[in-house]
């Protein structure tokens, strides 16, 4: 099945204004934004870039480490999802990653396509993570680490728990129907100071 990855872009192309795009990024203090296919070299490049940018920031090492750790986990989730997508569709999936800084702290936002059949199990995982407190998340992490049960329903299990644990904030997410078989999944991870 052929997926038109550029459908949204085509539809919006007439309205697209590069200055608005720039202003939005400025207003939201975007440290880094990337849209496109992802591979291991890119993951490495983004990690290196953000590490250098974080070095110049005045926050505590603790916050910087959290941002770095969560970003690595998010990027590698995207990387593994893309590998799966590529196997099915014989093309790379365009993903989007953004890191912004606001008064409360940092936001790491990602977006990628996800097979509709996985949406429900994904949603329930996210809901479960959000329903647990710090101690319960620690327990879930240990259980999944030793038994690996959580991840069987489509990967990204331990990664998401780890992201939730390190963030300490509820994971914000959304699913937007994209076409007959895929939804656009967005995740916003907050790292507050």
């Amino acid at each position: 099945m052929q997926i038109d990855l550029f459908y949204i872009k085509k539809r919006l192309s007439e309205e697209f204004n590069i200055f608005d795009f720039y202003s939005d990024m400025e207003k939201n203090n975007v440290l880094l934004s990337f849209k496109g296919a992802i591979n291991d070299d890119l993951v490495a490049a983004i990690i290196e870039l953000i590490e250098k940018k974080l070095e110049l920031k005045s926050e505590s090492t603790k916050i910087k480490k959290k941002v770095f750790n969560i970003l690595v986990e998010c990027l590698q989730n995207l990387y593994h999802h893309n590998a799966e997508f590529n196997e099915k569709n014989d093309e790379d999936m365009a993903v989007v990653v953004m890191i912004a800084k606001n008064i409360e702290g940092y936001s790491i936002v990602t977006g990628n396509l996800i097979d509709d059949v996985k949406v429900d199990s994904f949603k329930s995982k996210l809901e479960e993570i959000n329903s647990l407190d710090k101690k319960e998340l620690k327990q879930l992490y240990k259980t999944v680490l030793t038994e690996g049960k959580f991840s069987e329903a489509g990967g990204a299990g331990l990664g998401l728990i780890d992201i939730g644990r390190k963030s300490g904030e509820p994971l914000e997410y959304g699913f937007i129907p994209f076409n007959d078989s895929y939804s656009f999944f967005s995740l916003n991870v907050k790292i507050n100071q």
């Binding site: 480490k65 770095f68 750790n69 690595v72 590698q76 680490l145 030793t146 690996g148 331990l158 780890d162």
Partner: peptide, 12 residues
């Protein structure tokens, strides 16, 4: 200094 969740299983 850092390790990802994929390494955490291997460390175990």
């Amino acid at each position: 200094e850092y390790f990802n969740t994929s390494s955490s299983k291997c460390l175990l």
